[in-house]
């Protein structure tokens, strides 16, 4: 944060204090294990409900149990891109490096969930329609979202200067987030016009309550996991970026 902006801010706002990587680093270190613990607990609970409490589905038999990971992964892939774009916007608006670091920290986890959504979608599609890839509207948008994630990560990897990489990635993330609804709707029209509405991955057969709770628990589990992973990764990014600074040297020296 350039000194000029800090003076310009009224002293009342102290949460800007956490915008400095140095003060956020220990906070992230403290929070991450908690979120990881919550994730483990929720995963176990969600899987238990999904496999042992939720009944067998009338039409799809046992294959539908894939939704307990497919739907959360799909939602997370979308949510993480939105959060990434939010941090990118904040980073550009307030010129805070930490927000950019947060966006870069989220990207790999978002790409991971997008890949999982595609993988589990294909494995779910095979028993229900007989083909691994049925060019369903949601799956096709998910594939394009995966390309957007790879584009963001590839752009940041291609730029050496961290400051430029942050800002360039941020612009791309914002352009991407504006295009996601456009991509989704054009793929939806494309799907319905070509194949008619017959083949579309319905989110799930009429959901028994236990199925729904199982899925929601899994969503929160993925959510907690994503936060933990992002916080750990942002700590790595902070250490890599601030390697020269004294506080990192002391921390590494002491924390050996």
């Amino acid at each position: 944060m350039s000194s000029a902006t800090r003076e310009a801010l009224p002293q009342g706002i102290t949460w800007f204090k956490y915008a400095a990587p140095q003060t956020f680093f220990p906070l992230a270190g403290a929070l991450a294990p908690w979120f990881a613990a919550i994730a483990v607990v929720l995963f176990v609970a969600g899987l238990y409900i999904g496999f042992f409490v939720a009944p067998t589905d009338a039409q799809q038999g046992e294959a539908y149990r894939i939704i307990f990971i497919h739907v959360p992964a799909a939602w997370m892939s979308m949510l993480i891109y939105l959060v990434m774009a939010f941090w990118a916007g904040v980073g550009l608006a307030f010129n805070t490096r930490l927000s950019h670091m947060m966006a870069s920290a989220l990207a790999p986890t978002g790409a991971l969930f997008t890949f999982l959504a595609l993988w589990t979608g294909a494995l779910w599609g095979k028993p229900t329609w007989g083909t691994w890839w049925a060019w369903d509207a949601r799956m096709t948008s998910e594939l394009l979202l995966l390309f957007l994630y790879f584009g963001f990560m590839a752009l940041q990897a291609a730029i050496d200067d961290p400051r430029r990489a942050d800002k360039a990635g941020a612009v791309l993330a914002l352009v991407g987030v504006i295009n996601i609804p456009i991509i989704y709707f054009s793929v939806k029209w494309w799907n319905t016009l070509h194949q008619g509405a017959s083949v579309s991955l319905k989110s799930a057969p009429t959901m028994a309550t236990t199925m729904l709770t199982g899925m929601l628990v899994m969503v929160f589990a993925c959510w907690a996991y994503a936060i933990a992973a992002a916080l750990w990764r942002v700590r790595c990014i902070i250490l890599e970026r601030e390697r020269r600074s004294d506080w990192v040297r002391d921390y590494l020296g002491a924390g050996r």
């Binding site: 957007l148 584009g151 752009l155 291609a158 352009v175 295009n179 991509i183 054009s186």
Partner: peptide
């Protein structure tokens, strides 16, 4: 503009831009 002066800019440009071209291609 984003990939200005980057090595391997051509392929990177394609990776950034082609997904955003999908709606135009479809319509």
């Amino acid at each position: 503009a984003l990939t200005l002066g980057l090595r391997g800019g051509g392929v990177l440009l394609a990776l950034l831009v082609l997904p955003l071209y999908a709606p135009v291609l479809i319509l």
